[in-house]
Write a protein that binds this DNA or RNA. Structure first.
Lengths: 346, 346
DNA sequence: CTGTTAGCGCTTTCAC
DNA sequence: GTGAAAGCGCTAACAG
C-alpha cells in the first residue's frame, strides 16, 4: 500500500517528523542532514533531501529559534520610513545582514524616545539576536532595557564621544554631526559672507548638533546673530524650505548666506530664489545637508555635506555581527566622517 | 528569607513560570492575566502585573507563536529599498499593520523573480500570517508556494485584470499602469505634439505596461515612431535621464515631446534642457511618472502622474487583515487609480 | 475564576 | 553515524 503524506502539523505543513518517516530515519537525523550535512552519511543525506523536497518541507524557524535561543533576527529602530536618510542606512544594514542569514526587523519610532522605548519593548519579545538603534538619545528606561540584553546593541548616526550623556561604552557608528555643521559654517565664513542664517526643521538631536556646530563656527568668526536662526519642529520638505526662506528674507533682507539643515529645505530655498530672481550665490549663498539624490542636479548645483549613510548601515551591521559572534575586541566606535561638497551655490 | 529572582530561562530572562511563582499562581494564569485580563480576577491581575514588572518580564513571542501557530508577522516583498516608490507602499503597510500588532518583515527581491522566490522561501520558514508581494509577475514555483499557503496573500502595484497570466483569483491592490501610460501619451498628443519620444529605465513589468499604454495612445493618434523609444535596463536616476535625453536629441533633433517613465529621469531631462537652453515646454514638452517629492518643484514644475503608493500600502494591509480574520467577502481587487498632474512642462 | 496536562516543531545531550 | 529522551516558553483544551 502506498504511503500517504502524513501532514501531522496543525498548519498543514510537513514537519521534520514527517520527513523523517518518509526517509526512514529519525527526526534528529533530518535536522542534522539539513543543518550539518557533514555529520551525516552521504546516502542518508540524499534520502532526506529527496523526502524533504517531495513533501515540500519548509523547516520552522520559529521552532528552531525557540530550541536554540537564536532568532536570527535583528531589531532595527529608525525614526521614519519616509526620510531617505534612514532608508539608506537600513539598506546598508539589510545588505550586510542578509548574506549571514539574519533578518532585519524594522521598528519606526517617529522621532520620539518614548515611542522608541515602546517599540523596543514589543520587539524584544521576539528575542532578536541584536539591536541597532538610531542615535544615542534614548529614555532612561530604554537604556535599562538595552543594558539588560544578552545580545549586542549598536547605535548609529552619532558617536559616543560627542554625546553628552552616559553611553555605557556603547558600540557606535556614525560621524560628528557637530563637526559637519561647523564645517559648513566655516565654509560660509571663508566665502566672505557676513550675514549668515540658519534654517532647520525636524529638530532631532542630530539636527541640533549640526546647528550647534554651525553656530560655534560663526561665534568663532564673531559673526553670529541669533536673529538669523529659524528653527521649527515641522518635518522638512521642499515646500517648507521655500516658505521659511521667504519669512527670513522678509525680516532680514541683508541675509547673504544660508545653511539649511537638510537638502530638501535647501532645494526649496533655491526654488524660491529662482522665482524671486535672487541670485545664487551672487546675492545669497546656500548650503544644504546630506547630499541627497538631487543635490548635484539643482540649478545651480547645491553645496552640501555628503554623509556616509549607507556605509553607516554596513558598518553597524558588521560590528553587530562581530559582537554576536563574540568578537568583542574590535573598535567600539567607528567614525565614518563626512565630506563637504562645495558646488556652485556658495 | 528573601526570595531571589529565579531566572530559569537559558536566555537569562524571566519566564512566565518565574512570574507565576513570584505571584503565587500558575503559569496559565499569568498568560491569561497578560493576554485576556478580563478572564482573571482583579486581584490576581494586579499581583501578576506587579511580579511581572519586578522581574522585568518580557513574554517570548517566539514561544507564543509556536504554541498558537500565529507569528503576528507579515512578509512584505519589495524589489528595492532605495526606490522611494516601494518605501511609500511599505510605510502605508507598516502604519496599517502596526496598530493591530502585526510586524511587517521586509524581503528585498532586486527586481528578480528568482530572487523573489528564494527570499519568499526563506521567509516562509518563519511562518508569516500573511504575505504582500509587489506585482503579479512571479515564477511558477512562487505561485505554487503561494497556493500552498494557509495564509492570505496580497499583490500590489498592479491589477489582476491587467495581468496576462493566470492570477488564481489573487487579491490585488493597485492601479492600471497601462492606462496611466496611455493617459500621458494622449495628453502629449492633445497638446499638439507630433514627435513624441519615450525614455525608460528599470524595465520591470510595471514600467513596460506604462510604456505599452503610452505606445497605444500614439498608435491611436497615428503618431507612433519606434525610433523615438529609448529603453534601457539600468536603474533610473537623474544622471541617466540627462544622458539619455542627450542621446535621443542627437539622433532625433525634431523631438518635441518626451515621456520619461520615472520622475528622476524627467528631472535629469529638465536639467539637461536648462543647461542646453532648450525651452520647456516651448521646444520640448516633458512628462514624468510617479509625482515624487520634488516634481512640483522643478523648474518649470513637472507634469507627471501621481500614483497612490501610500494608499496602496494601506489598502493592501487592510485587505490582508480582513482575510486573516476570515473576511473573504470583500473586494478581491482594488483599483486605486492615478491622477495626471498637468503642470508646466507640457 | 484558576489549575493541570499536553504539545507546538525543533535541537540539545547523551547513549548506542 | 544515528537515535531516544527531554525541553525551549508558551497556550489550547479541558477539568474543577
Amino acid at each position: 500500500m502506498p504511503t500517504r503524506k502524513p501532514r501531522s502539523s496543525r498548519t498543514g505543513r510537513a514537519t521534520m517528523a514527517d520527513v523523517a518517516t518518509a526517509a526512514g530515519v529519525s527526526a534528529m537525523t533530518v535536522s542534522r542532514a539539513l543543518n550539518r550535512p557533514d555529520k551525516v552519511s552521504e546516502e542518508v543525506r540524499a534520502r532526506v533531501a529527496e523526502a524533504s523536497r517531495r513533501l515540500g518541507f519548509v523547516p520552522s524557524r520559529l521552532a528552531a529559534a525557540l530550541a536554540t535561543a537564536r532568532s536570527m533576527t535583528v531589531t532595527v529602530l529608525i525614526p521614519s520610513l519616509t526620510n531617505s536618510v534612514f532608508i539608506d542606512v537600513l539598506a546598508g544594514i539589510q545588505e550586510t545582514l542578509s548574506p549571514h542569514g539574519y533578518q532585519p526587523v524594522i521598528g519606526v519610532t517617529g522621532y520620539a524616545p518614548e515611542e522608541e522605548e515602546r517599540v523596543l519593548r514589543t520587539q524584544l519579545a521576539s528575542g532578536p539576536d541584536g539591536v541597532i538603534l538610531t542615535g544615542l538619545d534614548h529614555t532612561p528606561a530604554t537604556w535599562d532595557l538595552l543594558r539588560g540584553l544578552p545580545t549586542p546593541v549598536v547605535h548609529t548616526m552619532d558617536l559616543a564621544r560627542n554625546f553628552a550623556g552616559d553611553t555605557d561604552d556603547a558600540l557606535t557608528v556614525g560621524f560628528s554631526q557637530f563637526d559637519a555643521g561647523h564645517a559648513v559654517g566655516r565654509h560660509l565664513v571663508e566665502r566672505g559672507r557676513r550675514r549668515i542664517g540658519l534654517i532647520a526643521g525636524q529638530l532631532d538631536p542630530r539636527t541640533r548638533q549640526r546647528c550647534d556646530g554651525w553656530r560655534q563656527a560663526l561665534v568663532e568668526a564673531g559673526l553670529h546673530d541669533p536673529a538669523l536662526e529659524l528653527m521649527v519642529p515641522d518635518s522638512t520638505s521642499v515646500a517648507l524650505g521655500a516658505e521659511l526662506l521667504e519669512r527670513m528674507l522678509a525680516a532680514h533682507p541683508d541675509l547673504d548666506a544660508l545653511f539649511l539643515c537638510n537638502d530638501d529645505l535647501a532645494q526649496g530655498a533655491l526654488f524660491h530664489c529662482a522665482r524671486r530672481g535672487i541670485a545664487v550665490p551672487g546675492r545669497l549663498a546656500v548650503a544644504g545637508f546630506n547630499d541627497l539624490g538631487g543635490a548635484a542636479w539643482t540649478i545651480p548645483p547645491l553645496t552640501t555635506v555628503a554623509t556616509p549613510r549607507h556605509a553607516i548601515g554596513v558598518e553597524a551591521a558588521r560590528l553587530l555581527l562581530a559582537a554576536i559572534n563574540g568578537n568583542d575586541n574590535g573598535p567600539r566606535s567607528v567614525d565614518l566622517g563626512f565630506r563637504l561638497m562645495v558646488r556652485e551655490t556658495t
